[in-house]
Write a protein that binds this DNA or RNA. Sequence first.
RNA 1: GCCACCAUAGCUCAGCAGGUAGAGCGCCUCACUUGUAAUGAGGUGGCCGCGGGUUCGAUUCCUGCUGGUGGCUCCA
Length: 640
Amino acid sequence: MSEYIKIIFPDDTDREFAKRSTPSDIAEQISRKLSQQAIVAKFNDRMVDMNRPLDSDGRIVFYTADDPEGLDTYWHSTSHVMAHAIKKLFPEANFGFGPAIDHGFYYDVEVGRTLTPEDLEKIEKVMQEIIDSDKPFKRRVVTRDEAIELFSERNEKFKLEHIQTLEGELSVYGEGDFIDLCSGPHLVSTKQIKYFKLLNISGAYWKGDESNPMLQRIYGISFPKKSQLDDYLHKLEEARKRDHRRLGKELDLFSINETVGAGLILWHPNGALIRKLIEDFWKDEHLKAGYELVNTPHIARLNLWEVSGHLDFYSESMFKPNEMDNVQYQIKPMNCPFHLAIYKSRTRSYRELPIRWAELGTVYRYERSGVLHGLLRVRGFTQDDAHIFCRPDQLEDEILRCLNFNTYILKTFGFENYDVYLSTRPDNYVGTVENWDKATEALKSALEKLGLAYSIDPGEGVFYGPKIDIKIKDVLDRAWQCTTIQVDFNEPERFDITYRGQDGHDQRPIMVHRALMGSLERFFGVLIENYGGAFPVWLSPVQVILLPITDSHLEHAEILRERLVDSGIRVKLDDRSEKIGYKIRDAEMQKIPYMCIIGDKEIAEATISVRKRKEGDLGSFNVQDFIDRVTHEISTKQIT
RNA sequence: GCCACCAUAGCUCAGCAGGUAGAGCGCCUCACUUGUAAUGAGGUGGCCGCGGGUUCGAUUCCUGCUGGUGGCUCCA
């Protein structure tokens, strides 16, 4: 047996090290910086602790706190320290799962009573003591029996339950007198955790199952540098400032009224104007893109939903039907059955396909009370819906068109980064495997032709067909689910829609459901957060506000106002007897893009002083030049 | 729906160990006539979310409901 092992580095160079060298040893011999910064390593595609002795040749990659892998370990170790602290304060505590997540970590725990924010402070204090005591994280491989004995002693009922479901090698990690079932990897010592904060407490079902007991979930975050923690907390604060519910109030865009009902949106004039602009744009572009617009009722006989199959699958999410003249009527949760009914209104020829019908269709769905959230999750909303009926040979091309069209529409609102998901056949499905495979291939092929990177959500398709979901990324890099493109084998079947083929026989068309913005409510919410309420000029309810210095300039300002109105600009005149600083502050807070100051100087020179929202004074403008500038920004839908 | 928390003026929030309430902003009036993010003074404004209970007395304590917040579950 060799005394040495050969380690290959990411740049394909290799070096020999003494057998049972640890990643720490290896990093130390490469560079001091690396040994200080590396948190965890990957050895032959397995994540390993920095102090894990290596016995064989292999490839190694080091990760620091700048890598997702490094942070993942950092956060996971912090969650162990948190659990340790909780155990010290609540010896009876029972632990569920405690993983690292996208931003930070959590641990699910049962402690016998409700935790309060004061408890979090106490836990933080004990965590700091554990960190300061510089306890090494120790890994130990255990047999199943040992593990069961270990956690029986500790009365860890959830861990014991979890052990039953685990296969293969079991390991535990301990630091100090705390021990936890865990596959790792971990930091070398608690001391490596520098800056952390516990953020909030909430409920979470054990193993995410509604029928299981609810544990208390504590969320937290940690970083090696104070600046990182500060940045993170600052970002949370930024997100809070952009909260569409807050801005909706401040900018008088929309409201939700208890008496009207939860999850039902009242669009105020400012919001309704923005909605009109979005709708106009949407309709115009759809007509240009080869869609036709249709309109359908808000309710229909219950029978329609029996035919569509929604009653079987989704009645829990539907409002209860209404009975009139012995007929049951259902408020619509979807638009598609109506479009199918239009399709069926006469025979269709293969020459007509593809048929693309679009509708801003308002639907109502019963969402459970706990999930409602501002504009983002509501009970009544308007889908920017369309249904495409096409021949099988047209499917891929139609998907391609949808994707391209979607990119164009979203780009207009400033969204250019996406996460794309392809959801494949679930266990519970209708149609033939062959059709599913063909449709999935068509979706895949379209994505690949466009060079769109996507990930596959296996088995996450809807029961009636595979789908593409697109999450748009906003300026804070948060992802929002909006676009969905779904192939449907079910409804054409259920409604028995056909087209007369070239051969004279009736064929079954394929149906594609698609929504680009998702719903106007949700999209509006995302827009508000993305722009932080500072809408681009083309979407701003008020585009220009005129601010006369004193009352004596009012008359001139009124003439200017009319001139701007005639140019198609949405303009307001602040005619209050206030100081100019006050009027500017007010306009800034209303996030009006342009402020025009009018005083003696401007009247004498026939100019206006222009101030741009957030940027400040732009100087003196010839009135026509200013009008040209603004109308150009509007017509080109400029983003900033 | 579940766990926890919350609900006081249009908004943000204070207060009450149980004796029917207060600030700032807003709004209105007046004065000021103002030059790039808050002029001053005065005034207006509240069934303390809704119902029930305990109590001599409830905005305050208990309870049900409604609505909201953070998550969980769900999201055709």
